[in-house]
C-alpha cells in the first residue's frame, strides 16, 4: 500500500473511539485490583486490634502513610510514562522523598534503639509473612493497572511497568501495614522496601511483556 493511500484511509477515521481517558481507566483498574487485594487481606490477615491507638504514634502512622505516598506518586508517574513525550514533572523528584524518609526513619530508629535490641527489632518475627504478603496483595492491583495502561503508549514499556509495580506495591503495603505489628522502622523500612522493590521488578517484567505496542 502506498503511504498516501494509507493516510487517506486513516483520515476517514479521524475522531478517536469514544472511551474514557487512560487515567480514568487506570483509576478503575486500581480500584478493581484493590477490591481483590482487600478480599485477600480480610480473608488471610485483617487489621490489628489496637490499630487506631497505635496510629497516634507518628512512627507507626508513617508505615502506612509512606507507602500511600509512594502509591500516589508512582501512579502519576506511570500515567505520564504512557503518554509519549510527556514530561515527568515534579512527581519524579518528589517520589525520592519516600525512600529518603524511610532511610531517615531507619537511621533514627537505629540511634534510638538500645544496641542490644537493634537486631531483635530488625529481624522481627514476621519476615516470612511480610514479604510474600506485600507481593501477593500487589498482584491484583498490578494486574488491573497494567491492563488499563495497555491503552496508553509507553515508549519505555519496562519503566512504565516498574512504575506501575511501585504504585501497586505502595497501595498493597499500606494495606498490609494495618495488619503488621512490627512498629520499628528497623523492621519496616527494610523489609517493606524489599517487598516493594521485588514488586517493582515484577512490574518491569510485566511491562516488557504486556505494555509493548
Amino acid at each position: 500500500m502506498k503511504t498516501d493511500d494509507l493516510i487517506s484511509l486513516l483520515a476517514q477515521d479521524a475522531a478517536p473511539p469514544p472511551a474514557a481517558p487512560v487515567a480514568q481507566q487506570a483509576v478503575l483498574g486500581v480500584a478493581f485490583g484493590f477490591v481483590g487485594a482487600l478480599i485477600l487481606y480480610l480473608l488471610a490477615l485483617g487489621p490489628r486490634a489496637d490499630l487506631m491507638i497505635r496510629w497516634q504514634d507518628p512512627v507507626v502512622l508513617a508505615k502506612t502513610l509512606l507507602p500511600l505516598g509512594l502509591f500516589a506518586l508512582a501512579l502519576v508517574l506511570s500515567l505520564r510514562r504512557v503518554r509519549p513525550g510527556a514530561a515527568m514533572g515534579k512527581a519524579a523528584r518528589l517520589v525520592w522523598l519516600v525512600p529518603l524518609m524511610a532511610a531517615a526513619l531507619f537511621v533514627w530508629a537505629f540511634v534510638a534503639t538500645p544496641p542490644g535490641e537493634r537486631l531483635v527489632d530488625f529481624l522481627g518475627h514476621s519476615i516470612p509473612v511480610c514479604l510474600p504478603a506485600i507481593n501477593v496483595l500487589s498482584l491484583p492491583i498490578l494486574g488491573g493497572l497494567i491492563f488499563a495502561l495497555r491503552r496508553g503508549a509507553p515508549v519505555d514499556p519496562q519503566l512504565a511497568g516498574a512504575l506501575a509495580g511501585l504504585a501497586s506495591a505502595g497501595l498493597a503495603t499500606a494495606l498490609y501495614s494495618t495488619f503488621c505489628t512490627e512498629d520499628s522502622p528497623l523492621f519496616y523500612a527494610t523489609w517493606y522496601s524489599l517487598g516493594i522493590i521485588f514488586t517493582a521488578g515484577l512490574g518491569a517484567w510485566a511491562g516488557g511483556k504486556w505494555l509493548r505496542w
Partner: peptide, 12 residues
C-alpha cells in the same frame, strides 16, 4: 503512521 493513529487519544 498507524501507531500515531492507534494512539491518538494519548495526546493532550
Amino acid at each position: 503512521l498507524l501507531a500515531v493513529h492507534a494512539k491518538r487519544h494519548t495526546w493532550r
